[in-house]
């Protein structure tokens, strides 16, 4: 195998893994907060990508600027989703019913996108879209690096928020033990809502990053939800660092395996990892205690 080609795949894999990690962090947050498998996460991702594309083609400004609107918008949507819908489901059947509810939201978003923008494939044409630079013989597109940078900054911000702020402390307490958190005076209901908002805000950032160099269409979210689900299971449901590690490793594996297997078959690595994890180590490879019961 060509060394430069391999190196290029590794770099691209890491860049892709960064985006996966950001999105998986959102999914992990939802799961940690209320044991919800949020199917609509990737639909919101595509929605954000469409909004970025629309900003660029209709308003003629840089798609990155769309985040000024989409990030707060998605944050609000996340809070509403949690407070208005998910928290009203019966606790006993919450895990299952929330899957259906978020699935319904995903399908609705897909339908609305198809209705508003038709099923045509869209792509942003950027001035710097074709720019690239060489690195030890590999060619890396600038937009991919920007996408990775966005993901890294967002993930880093999330990390600092979780570890360094009072809100992060309350959120982590809520995730670890809801009742205990309530006992020490945390308004867990509100914190849970903000946690969802935060999770959905990662989808806004991720979607904008995605739109920079990807062709988008309404049903694209199905191609994302499978890998993301696999990542959070392999990472151990509920563990953010676990999800990030799994995202980087699987993103890398997918990218490298594309050389011998082709793009389509390389995707199977996610599902193989998913099945192997569940069959041999159901609590995940990096994971927390939560996963054992789910």
């Amino acid at each position: 195998m060509d060394g430069a080609l391999l190196f290029q795949s590794v770099v691209l894999g890491l860049l892709l893994g960064g985006l996966y990690a950001l999105l998986a962090a959102g999914l992990t947050l939802y799961f940690g907060i209320m044991r919800v498998v949020m199917i609509a996460h990737s639909a919101f991702l595509i929605l954000a990508a469409y909004l970025a594309w629309w900003t660029h083609t209709e308003l003629g400004i840089d798609p990155l600027l769309s985040m000024i609107v989409t990030v707060p918008l998605f944050f609000g949507a996340g809070v509403l989703l949690q407070r208005g819908l998910l928290s009203r489901l019966r606790p006993m059947t919450l895990t299952m019913m929330s899957v259906l509810l978020t699935f319904a939201i995903a399908v609705t978003i897909e339908g609305l996108l198809g209705y508003a923008f038709t099923g045509t494939q869209r792509r942003i044409q950027l001035g710097y879209g074709s720019a690239s630079f060489g690195l030890f013989g590999a060619r890396i597109a600038v937009v991919k690096l920007i996408a990775f940078g966005l993901a890294a900054v967002a993930l880093g911000g999330l990390y600092l928020l979780m570890k360094r702020t009072r809100f992060g402390w309350a959120l982590r307490a809520t995730i670890q033990h809801q009742d205990a958190a309530r006992l020490v005076g945390i308004d867990t209901a509100r914190i849970a809502g903000y946690g969802f908002g935060l999770g959905l805000a990662t989808a806004a950032v991720g979607g904008t990053a995605l739109s920079l160099d990807t062709t988008i269409y309404p049903s694209l979210h199905w191609h994302w939800i499978g890998p993301l689900m696999a990542i959070i299971v392999v990472g151990g449901l509920g563990s953010v660092p676990g999800a990030a590690a799994a995202a980087l490793i699987l993103g890398l594996a997918q990218s490298v395996l594309q050389i011998p297997m082709g793009t389509t078959w390389a995707q199977t690595v996610f599902y193989l990892a998913l099945f192997a994890t569940l069959a041999f180590r159901p609590q995940g490879f990096f994971g927390g205690r939560l996963a054992q019961r789910f």
Binding site: T95, V99, G226, L237, L274, L278, P282, R293, F294
Partner: peptide, 15 residues
């Protein structure tokens, strides 16, 4: 899918 609880089952069913 069935060794662990509901959430993993749903994920596997989608996969």
């Amino acid at each position: 899918a069935l060794r662990v609880r509901g959430a993993s089952f749903v994920i596997v069913s989608i996969a």
